[in-house]
Amino acid sequence: MVLKIEGLVKNYGDVKALDGLDLEVKQGQVYGFLGPNGAGKSTTILSTLGLIYPQHGRIELVGLEVFRDGKYSEDSLVEVKRKVGYMPEHATLWDFLTPMQTLDIIGEAFGIPGRERRKRAEELLKLLNLWEVRDKKVGKFSKGMRQRLLLAQSLVNDPELLILDEPMTGLDPSGIAEFKDIIKDLNREGKTVFFSSHILAHVEEICDTVGIIVKGRLIAEDRLETIKREFLRKAGYIIILETNKPISFEGTGWKATPLGEKKYRIAAPDDIREELHDFVASQGAKILTMQVKEPSLEEIFLKIVE
């Protein structure tokens, strides 16, 4: 187990940020930590790294217990941080430094010797397409470049576990795609990736496991497909159907709403795509397009909370 959290409680005054959170991340996983804003994602990450003080619970990170019942073991924390990379949300870096200097100073924190630091910095800057701007001050960087440098700084120590807090916020679609590819590559290299997001699309394709946190509690944890299927099972299916000629749904028991002359939105308790094929054919029509409407993360949250 790379990360194990048991019964973690964190209150900010009267506000319960974490309410007995339990979480496990296995070696080699890409774990998507999903939740709406204010659900407790960042609080969980900050607690894991010893940046905030939870009141109760237990945290085990890369095999070492770092927190138990209100106390961090600072020696263990320092030890595990050698094996962990962290990319914070909404962070800037030191504006007056260049990417090369930034990575050099980060490498210094890990006690990496000078020549090795420079070599590692070069590798990372090339990997993240920042080599061309290695001597430019970070203060002049675009949002995308900053995000890539933030990721680079989290990789300086070649970590076993990579913790990314909302890494794709503010990126354009091509930036998001690029980021996803990088995460996939890092995972292929054997790194465990734990990253938080409040946007479902960000975790799709790359996560093998997803945990959903709402009001400081993990309310679902499984493969994303399974969570979605479970949602559809509970909420029912929405199918968008387009045919070559108008058809009537009278007497079917399905709730069909016309979206156009030959386009329908059909709500059904089960997956009725096969039945629809037969039904449309029985009306002498052909299906042009048919797709199940993907639930949004918000819809899943709402359903699970219900």
């Binding site: 900050l46 790294l49 010893g50 940046l51 320092v78 030890e79 941080k81 050698r82 962990v84 962290y86 914070p88 949300e89 909404h90 962070a91 800037t92 870096l93 030191w94 980060i106 924190a109 890990f110 006690g111 933030l150 700084q153």
Partner: peptide, 10 residues
Amino acid sequence: GTLRIAMSKP
């Protein structure tokens, strides 16, 4: 956010 970066190091 620089403090969070610094303090995430050993």
